[in-house]
Structures are given as structure tokens and as C-alpha cells.
Design a protein around this nucleic acid. Sequence first.
DNA 1: AAAACCAGTTGCAATAAACAAGCAGTTGAA
DNA 2: TTCAACTGCTTGTTTATTGCAACTGGTTTT
Lengths: 169, 169
Amino acid sequence: MEDAHRSGCPINLTLEVLGDRWSLIVIRDIMFGNRRHFRELLQNSEEGIASNILADRLKRLLERGLLTREDDPSHKQKAIYSLTEMSIRLVPIFAEMGAWGRRFLPVSEELSIRAELLEEGGRPLWEDFMQELRVLHLHVPRDPSKPSVFDHLRAAYLEVVARNKTAAE
Amino acid sequence: MEDAHRSGCPINLTLEVLGDRWSLIVIRDIMFGNRRHFRELLQNSEEGIASNILADRLKRLLERGLLTREDDPSHKQKAIYSLTEMSIRLVPIFAEMGAWGRRFLPVSEELSIRAELLEEGGRPLWEDFMQELRVLHLHVPRDPSKPSVFDHLRAAYLEVVARNKTAAE
DNA sequence: AAAACCAGTTGCAATAAACAAGCAGTTGAA
DNA sequence: TTCAACTGCTTGTTTATTGCAACTGGTTTT
């Protein structure tokens, strides 16, 4: 459909790839939620994406080099979606968007704890996180001296969830 | 129209405000091109925005606090659109998007020189630029000791345009 | 053998975008 | 003072996208 770009401006081209309401949501769930299968993305979706939209976005992101897809050896029907270097490098954009959203929009505590940690950790933390995503998604060997940023972010999220749950009881 | 948010996630909320193909283009032109009137935004648009879409986006951005609108004292029909603190703080997101687009997408040299300078200048330059946008848009008094980042970016852009023009002759 | 799970498709209605034309008023030059 | 150009939009129409619900052919688990 679109192969004529509106302009060569980097902001415009980035918007042509990511400027819709779902593409970054899908990448976010793969990146921060480690959801690698279609059903995981569909059913655990915080925002309730529809299956046809999810299928369409996965297809587009594959075509544009932001995701790869491979068969799951443990299940003939399962597909595994992975990030690429291109999408892993979206981490700084996610971090800045998270910081902006946290400052100006009515975010919930649970869902913004990871954005807060990314903001506080700054670029060094982003780099560690990107390197860890390369291990998870690009089959890059792991550096055992580094603690897992992914686990750190997930633990902080689960802690807030647990704290709010007990507080509600 | 929508007051029920899909979720309280900062990424999602940011996408609900900015996740379409035109909102950031409009803000970009006001921010980097200093286009303050409807016709300027319409006719100088690199991407060719339609007038009804522009009108709709300006309205939405006003409602959501990313722009303000005031009458131009020099012309009864003219309106002046200005950035707010909220939209000025999008500078880091623009910078990261520009850097990402420059790395992975087929950008043109002319339109990416500003992204390159923003990337090289890093956060200190972004802060200077944001302070200058506050002078231009929020009636904040100017610090005369600071050189203009805006002029710097514009001069670099015009230089590339001029160079490419003479090279083409 | 049945139930649950797998990655999607299909059909339809509602919404949004793209395109072209037009509008009531204002301004600046002849 | 007349006229063309300019002002911020609006209207109508066509096309593309989105959202919803049901469904498909196949696989795995119980």
C-alpha cells in the first residue's frame, strides 16, 4: 500500500512506522512483558487489542524489520516473535515516552513503576537493558557479571501489585 | 470523544495523545519550523497535511493542553498557536525519534541535519533548546548569555539546502 | 474422545483519513 | 474604491482503517 514516503524527515519516517495506536503497544508487551506468542499478546493485553489488529500489526512489524518470527520447536502451532536490533533500540524512546507520560498524564502507579525505574537509571541502565534484550531475542551470549535489568523491572512491578493488593484487603 | 482510557500505562497514555500520523508532525512544525499560523502549517507542510485534518489536530491538541491559541493583534483573522510546557518537554522524545529514524530509515540529508545536531548535542543541548522554546512560546524572558539553539538548527538546515542546491546546478 | 489451545480469518458496522471545493470576512495594493 | 489575495477554517464525498464477534483448521492435553 505505502511505499511512497510522505517525506524524508526522520520524525515523519519514524511516525510512518510507529505512528499508530497499537504498534508500540505490541512491541512494549514483547519487550517488557516478554510475551512471545500470539495468544500471550492477545489475552494478557492490558489495553484489549483485537485479534485481527494484532495479526495485522505483527505482519507489518515483521515486514518492516522490527520483529522476527520463528516456529516453536515444542509445539507445532506455536510461533515465537522476537525483537530485532531495530526494535531493541527503541528503548530510549520508550524511556522518554514513559517519563513524559508519567509527568503529564494520569498514569496508574502499578503500570508506571517500570517507567520510573528507567527514568532514574538513565542511559546506562537503558544500555544494560538493551544488551539483555539482545541475549533474550538475538541469541547473543549472556554476560554473567551483569544482573538482569529485566528481572529488576519485573520484580519492582510485581512488588507494587502485591503491595496494592494487600492494601486493598 | 474518549474519556475512558485503555489503561494507565504511561506508554499507552502517551500513545492515546500522540499516537497518530499527524499530531507530532504538527508539533514538530511549530517547534522546529516556528510556524505559528494555520496557513503556515498548511502550506509549508513537507508532508502535505489536509486542511480538515490540520483543523482537527489543532483542536485536539488545544483540548489536551499541548497547544494554546491566541489572536494575532496585527490581523483580526489571524490566530497564533503556541507550545505549552507539556509540548516543549517533548523535545527529548523528538530527539530520540530523530536519532532512531536516522539510524534505521531512509532519511534525506536535508531533513535530518537537525536531528543529527540534536543527537550530538545530547541532553544539555535539549535543555537549552527547551529553554529557548519557553522564551518563544511562553513569554519567558530571554537569557542574553545563551546563543540561540533554534537559530543554530535553522542555519545548519539552510546551509545543507543551499549546498545541495548549488551542487545540483 | 472431548475439551482446551494454537495462530490467525472473515464479515460487518463504525470511525477516521484523504481529497477537492467553498465560505465569510480582512487586508493591502492599484 | 475596487479587486485580488489572504485569513482560519467547514462541507461533502470517497476511501482506508478500526473494533467487534464469530469462526476456522489444526494440535495438544486430559
